[in-house]
Simulated assay, not measured.
Amino acid sequence: MNIPEYLTSGILESYVLGAVSDEERREVECLSSIYPEIRQELDRLSAALEDYALSYSALPPIGLKEQIMAKLDFGTEAPPVETETPVVALPADSGPTYKITWIAAASLGLLVLIFSFFLLSQLRQAQRISATLRDSNETLQTEIQRQRDIRQRSEDLLAMLRQPEVRIIRLKGNDKAPTGEMMVYWHPHSRQVMVEIMNMPPLPANQQYQLWSLVNGQPVDAGVFDVTDAPQKMGRVIAQADAFAVTIEKRGGSPAPTLSSLVMMTPVTS
């Protein structure tokens, strides 16, 4: 169970205020007996409610009782009659009616407290919705940027393929990468090189594939690349190439190829 999410759901505040159904009440009581964190939060909310009610309770103003009794005085003692029959006067004290003011003040304070808890619950819900929308927006923006990068790289490759004399070399993996396959696009005049991954095993974060051109048997660094969905433009230019090869190197590349990690090599046909 996600305890922090349950504590911020607003159900405990509603329970303290008595604004829950019988099913919700049983749920809160059951969970509070199982999880100490819920029991502590429930006790804290109950204490806060009691402190709030006591803080906003007030004694009636001085003299309020006399003012009320004065308004309830319906007159003086009746005049005596000739028959000398005793006259019964109204009692001077009709009861503790001043308590009405205290009850009204306490009720008003309770209403304010209920409304405050309601606003707090709405604020927490709004914060959760805002966080969800923010995460969704960030994910969407990341995906939009990724799609833009893919489109731009595809447009760069299409522009290269439209140029005359572009060489297209298909590289296939050896026994160390039997399913490996990729395309190398090389334009000898502009010396630009792009690669497109067809099927390459992913590497650990501390490793990268490195492309080499072989000129008279000597390797020339053509740059490093990762396994991605989009064509990649290599960071180095290649003037000559008798063949292209790929090795697995540490991230950032190596000044010389590691022959033991050679995964593919294909000659450039004339």
Rank of each mutant, 00 (worst) to 15 (best):
A239G: 15
A243N: 02
N2W: 03
R44Q: 14
P257W: 04
D175M: 07
R236P: 00
Q67D: 06
I248W: 07
V112I: 10
S9C: 08
V227Q: 15
N216A: 13
Q232K: 04
L171F: 01
S190G: 06
Y209H: 09
D149M: 06
K71L: 15
S57A: 14
L54A: 12
F244A: 06
L140G: 02
R124N: 09
R167T: 11
F115Y: 07
P257F: 03
V237R: 14
K233N: 11
D43S: 13
A241Y: 07
D156R: 05
D73K: 07
G10C: 01
K172R: 10
K99E: 15
L133H: 13
R26V: 03
T132P: 00
V16S: 02
K250A: 14
L45A: 06
R167I: 14
E196C: 00
R151L: 11
V220C: 03
Y209M: 03
S154W: 00
E181D: 12
G63L: 07
P61Q: 11
I38C: 03
K71W: 10
I197D: 09
M1N: 07
Y185E: 01
Q127H: 01
A92G: 04
G252S: 08
L111V: 09
A89V: 12
W102N: 13
M160R: 10
G223F: 03
F225T: 01
R134N: 11
S9A: 14
V88Q: 14
M264H: 03
G75C: 04
Q208C: 04
T269Q: 11
V246N: 10
L72Q: 12
I168L: 13
A241R: 08
K250Y: 06
W212Y: 01
L161D: 04
L119A: 13
E13A: 11
S46F: 02
R44L: 15
Q145Y: 04
L31Q: 08
V224H: 02
M69D: 15
A230D: 08
A78R: 15
A47H: 14
A239M: 02
E138H: 08
E29I: 08
P202T: 11
Q240H: 13
L110Q: 09
V28E: 06
P257H: 04
P188M: 07
I11M: 12
I248Q: 06
E5T: 10
L90T: 09
I168N: 11
T258F: 06
I34N: 04
P61I: 08
L108Y: 10
P36Y: 02
G235K: 14
V16N: 02
L113R: 08
S9V: 04
G252T: 10
